[in-house]
Design a protein around this nucleic acid. Structure first.
Lengths: 162, 162
DNA sequence: TATTGTTATACTCTATAACTATA
DNA sequence: TATAGTTATAGAGTATAACAATA
């Protein structure tokens, strides 16, 4: 049986979470848990569930053939060792493949496979829809507002132009 | 040596992350990694670093003496088993203690210790400051806007009045 | 029969460091 | 000496299920 999210009968409605009430990082961290769980459910069985990196990797490799692992690692905020394991997994699943760069034999280039392309098609449908659905109780204009601000935050954090 | 976040020399500035560009869940999930990492650094050595639950638990137990584990579990989106281990840890660190509820001997009540109170004082300073600092490149009014919207999202998700 | 909390297990993610090979 | 990627390992967090005691 799965005991999680078994809401106790009485959650005091007037509860106040102290200084966290006004703390953006608290909401980011907490909502992250809920939205990630929901996304995992929607991706069940799709070789790309769990963790934040696989979806981004798949789409980037599809869009930028030959992209380097270290570039993706930077964009998904992982180190090279975590990135390597992630690529191992995706290679095992036949979604992408590595080649050694002809220009610099230390470096690798990543390419998508047919299976990867097919999965990317599904992903492009599921992922944005999951986000819209999950946050559907937020009015659309507010959703867009938050997204715009957080996009800029993200780009700032990883050092992309805004 | 710590290899993470070693930005590769050339991150193409015109890179586009496909459908994720407009996907709120992507930004929540990715920024979560960065902000959690930064928070952990600021809390280093404080018995309350790592994971999302300890800080909230400490503050709630301090504010609501006798609060039940299952209520906190619900508010931090963990199941009762994870909550139990979290309480074990905090009890080991001498921050809180458990008592069996006189009204219902299945249930527990949580109380703060002196060490817990002292830590809560520090936390109340560090945590909101960390959030403000981390997001300082977002203008203050936008930060407030995002916080207000996400607060409502959070309350909606956990079933608190808005 | 449902609820509160516990225990156990397997899996994943994370942080860190040391390593190889190439530039 | 710096860079790209690999390997190894210890620690945390997560999901799941089965459990005991009480209501």
């Amino acid at each position: 049986m799965h005991t999680r999210r078994s809401k106790p009968p009485t959650i005091p409605q007037d509860i106040n979470i102290d200084v966290l009430e006004d703390t953006l990082s608290f909401y980011i961290r907490t909502i992250n848990i809920a939205v990630s769980r929901d996304l995992d459910e929607r991706l069940e069985g799709l070789d790309v569930a769990k963790g934040t990196g696989k979806i981004t990797t798949l789409l980037l490799v599809d869009d930028y053939p030959g992209i380097r692992p270290s570039v993706i690692a930077h964009l998904i905020m992982r180190d090279r060792s975590a990135m390597g394991r992630l690529i191992d997994q995706m290679e095992d699943h036949g979604l992408i493949r590595r080649e050694i760069s002809p220009e610099d034999s230390r470096a690798q280039e990543l390419y998508i496979t047919e299976a990867g392309t097919a999965l990317a098609v599904k992903i492009r449908e599921i992922v944005p829809k999951q986000s819209r659905d999950f946050f559907s109780f937020i009015p659309e204009d507010e959703q867009r507002l938050v997204t715009d601000i957080l996009r800029r935050a993200y780009r700032r954090i990883v050092g992309l132009h805004e």
